[in-house]
């Protein structure tokens, strides 16, 4: 199949950026109350105006929600690229290290303990994610080296353990069970600027791998070959794994567990721009943001006034697209 930009990565980045902007505008414009583009422009330039319904919808509901979808999509996509390429395994996604299950356990505790007000639930989710990352990290450390396969196994194990506890809590939770299930499925419903601010913390982290693209390219040949070519493998791995873990924890803590984005976006982008990280990372970041924006738009408009959890939408849209691209890629 024909690739976008084989020698230069810029055509791919510019094109995806364009797609991203279109998706963002669509997600801002459509909803129970449609806002034409001219109106959006007016609302943006005027700033929040008290007493104006459109302004309230735009500034308090739609913009934060769209921005959050962008941020979470970008975070999951970047974490997905890091995970797949460090594990050299196409089936890994940001959730394999157990960070998401740890975060889910934290959030579930918050719901059960009735501290389900922001910021406490998010803080608990974040704490659960970080704690899992720490446990898995320590399990995989041997003589100053992080064994990537033990990390994977420990991640899966801890993930099952956390899920078991979540299930147990759900049984005990009674009326709160609905809230837990809804959180686990992942959604941007009811999220506001506070979540956006938290997710914004991850932006500098998303830039870290962009400065390590050559090392990540070389690591595609395996850790030993990377050492031979002069890469400080352990240091690079540590930096990237922690980055991916923190990105995932932040994304999950503000939005719940949204599946498929971190798995499928890197694959789709690899088919479009190739596995070189100078193109793969920025395009995945933009593509993840765009994809989750469209998914969120669909989740809140397809069955208006009801919402479909956004994780269901990402899977429904992403899976067929992915299979189509895989088949085309092989031909």
């Amino acid at each position: 199949m024909i690739r976008l930009g084989r020698t230069s990565v810029w055509p791919g980045i510019v094109l995806t950026a364009g797609v991203f902007v279109v998706c963002l505008l669509m997600s801002l414009a459509f909803g129970p109350a449609s806002l034409p583009l001219a109106r959006i422009w007016h609302l943006v330039t005027a700033g929040p105006v008290a007493g104006d319904l459109d302004s309230a919808i735009f500034w308090q509901i739609r913009l934060p929600r769209a921005l959050l979808a962008c941020l979470v999509g970008a975070e999951l996509a970047v974490a997905g690229v890091i995970m797949q390429d460090l594990f050299l395994n196409p089936l890994t996604d940001p959730y394999v290290t157990g960070v998401s299950s740890g975060a889910a356990l934290g959030a579930t505790l918050g719901i059960v303990l009735h501290v389900a007000q922001f910021p406490w639930m998010t803080v608990l989710a974040l704490a659960g994610g970080f704690a899992t990352l720490g446990i898995v990290w320590m399990a995989a450390r041997r003589r100053g080296r992080v064994n990537i396969f033990i990390l994977l196994l420990a991640g899966v194990t801890v993930s099952y353990l956390a899920s078991a506890v979540v299930t147990f809590l759900m049984i005990k939770a009674g009326d709160d069970m609905h809230a837990i299930v809804y959180w686990l499925m992942g959604s941007f419903s009811g999220r506001g600027w506070t979540e956006v601010e938290l997710a914004l913390l991850a932006v500098p982290l998303m830039l870290i791998p962009l400065f390590r693209t050559r090392e990540m390219d070389i690591l595609l040949q395996g850790e030993k070959r990377a050492l031979e070519l002069g890469v400080e493998v352990e240091r690079t791995k540590r930096l990237l794994l922690v980055t991916a873990g923190v990105l995932t924890a932040i994304a999950v803590s503000v939005s719940g567990i949204i599946g498929f984005v971190g798995l499928v976006v890197p694959h789709i982008v690899r088919l479009l721009v190739g596995p070189g990280h100078r193109g793969l990372l920025p395009v995945s970041l933009l593509f993840g943001a765009a994809m989750l924006n469209v998914a969120d738009l669909m989740s809140r408009t397809l069955l208006m006034p009801n919402e479909i959890p956004v994780g269901v939408v990402t899977t429904f849209v992403g899976a067929p697209l992915f299979v189509y691209l895989l088949r085309r890629g092989k031909a």
């Binding site: 390219d217 595609l220 040949q221 070959r225 031979e228 002069g230 400080e232 493998v233 190739g274 596995p275």
Partner: peptide, 22 residues
């Protein structure tokens, strides 16, 4: 590592690369 790689280069026995690089 980087300084040593400037002194010594190695051609490994096996070379696995499943990714579609040019």
């Amino acid at each position: 590592r980087r300084d040593l790689a400037r002194e010594v280069a190695l051609v490994p026995q096996s070379f696995a690369l499943d990714f579609d690089l040019s």
